[in-house]
């Protein structure tokens, strides 16, 4: 079982993204304990040093914390998670709006499209 990576971008950044996504989506729960670096690296199919770098980055951004003897854990700070979730959402929406603009679709057309799709759903 190997995670998919885009070899044109640094792998550690992609690992950060994957972990971040898992945390904000709830796939990884707050306070959950992570496997060791080696086990994580093996499961992901990446170099342990790369995994270590990604985890250090995540710690720096506050999504993980290390307890010296106990191991690594997902932060229990739900506020923080929410903050990052909203930031991620915001960036994605911006990206989406950019792409729509490039296609020549304005914001009114987008709103119409969205409400149309919402009606279809219910």
């Amino acid at each position: 079982m190997r995670w998919e990576f885009d070899n044109t971008r640094p792998v550690y950044i992609q690992l950060c993204e994957q972990f971040t996504n898992a945390i904000i989506s709830g796939a990884l729960l707050p306070g959950e304990k992570l496997m060791s670096v080696r086990d994580l690296a093996k499961e992901a199919g990446v170099n342990p040093n790369t995994m270590q770098k990604a985890l250090s980055e995540l710690e720096r951004s506050g999504l993980l914390y290390t307890q010296r003897t106990a191991g690594r854990f997902i932060t229990e700070n739900k506020e923080k998670i929410k903050e990052i979730k909203q930031e991620t959402a915001r960036l994605r929406v911006l990206q989406f709006l950019n792409e729509m603009a490039q296609l020549g679709i304005n914001s009114q057309e987008i709103e119409e499209l969205l409400s149309h799709m919402k009606k279809e759903e219910s």
């Binding site: 070899n7 044109t8 971008r9 640094p10 792998v11 550690y12 950044i13 790369t50």
Partner: peptide
């Protein structure tokens, strides 16, 4: 380092 190459050249190491 491999990630450094990717960051600098925006390519896979293979490319």
């Amino acid at each position: 380092p491999v990630d450094e190459l990717r960051e600098t050249h925006h390519q896979s190491v293979d490319a």
